[in-house]
Amino acid sequence: MSSTKKIRILCVDDHPIVREGLASIIALQPDMELAGEAESGAEALHLLRALAIDIALVDLRLKDMSGHELTRQILAHESGRQVIVLTSYEGDADIQRAFAAGARGYVVKGTGRDELLAAIRTVHAGRRHIPGSVAEKIAEHLGSEKLTDRELQVLAEIAAGKRNKEVGAALGIAEDTVKMHVKNILEKLEVNDRTEAVTVALRRGILHL
């Protein structure tokens, strides 16, 4: 197969061993080639200005920016490029943010080489790739009310171990207002206390420490 017809891939991950593994897998595929690799969002964007890329494999956790933000920037630069998220994050909130940013596929690390290769070929053919496990995560909380930006700020302060008064001081709001936000957070996450709220938020990818 001519190299001009191969799917050109950019791997963006801050772990060298992950990039090496991806390079080895891609090298064995007659219809794919690794066009470049980057360990940060800034490096990826720099490479994209010089390389012709069909698919970017993007991790959600990078040194300088989130994979969600990098996805938005990649897709804003040039039409025709597509993004597949390849990450260890399995929470429904992370998944939904990735697709909202424009990703066309979502693959969880450790699911196997065949899943990744299928995702690359499917997305390159113009379709979405949503594995069954990922679809289940999305469906599980479909229709759930999302936390507001202020509620996310309050939750982050709670996760840092702060009490309501300390949260209020940190955010410049009254303690009674913090209590109202906490009440709303517990209701939206369907939990009984602050500790459980943090646990659920971390598991779903609503919050990252």
Results as ranks from 00 to 15, higher is better:
L62H: 08
L45T: 05
A201P: 09
Q96M: 13
A103H: 09
M32C: 04
V134F: 01
D54G: 12
A35S: 15
H77N: 14
L48Q: 09
M180H: 07
I206A: 11
G41T: 11
L142K: 13
T71H: 13
G172K: 09
A139V: 00
V123H: 07
R81W: 00
L62Q: 14
T4S: 14
E151R: 06
I138Q: 15
Y106H: 01
A38L: 04
T87L: 05
I95F: 02
R121W: 03
G91S: 07
K146A: 15
L48V: 04
D31T: 13
D94G: 12
T199S: 15
M1C: 06
I53L: 12
A44G: 09
R113P: 00
V167L: 11
V85C: 00
M180R: 13
E136R: 14
T4C: 07
H15P: 03
R194Y: 03
A169I: 04
A100C: 10
Q96R: 15
D59L: 02
I26V: 02
E187C: 04
K183T: 03
V191S: 04
G132N: 10
G105A: 08
Q153A: 12
I206P: 07
L207H: 05
Q29D: 14
L62T: 09
I185F: 00
V182E: 15
E175W: 00
A98E: 09
Q29R: 12
K6N: 09
A50K: 13
K188Q: 14
R127P: 01
L57D: 13
N192W: 05
Y89R: 15
E115A: 05
P30K: 12
L28I: 04
P30I: 01
D31H: 10
T195I: 06
K63Y: 06
G91N: 08
K5A: 03
S79C: 03
K183I: 02
A98D: 10
L28H: 07
L10F: 04
G21M: 10
S88K: 09
V18D: 11
D92T: 15
R61K: 15
K188G: 06
K162G: 05
L117A: 04
D193Y: 02
E175A: 06
L207R: 11
D94I: 02
Q29V: 02
A135Y: 04
K179L: 11
E151D: 10
A174M: 13
A44V: 04
E166A: 06
A50D: 14
I25N: 08
L86R: 09
I185E: 12
E37K: 15
T87N: 10
I7M: 12
R121A: 02
R97V: 03
A23F: 07
M1F: 03
K63V: 03
A139Y: 06
G105F: 03
H68D: 14
A174I: 03
R203C: 02
I130G: 08
M32H: 12
D94R: 12
I185P: 05
L47A: 01
A125Q: 15
V167W: 09
I25M: 13
E157M: 11
R19L: 05
D64L: 04
I17R: 15
I120R: 14
G91I: 05
A101Y: 01
H77I: 06
N164S: 11
L47G: 01
V198H: 06
V12D: 11
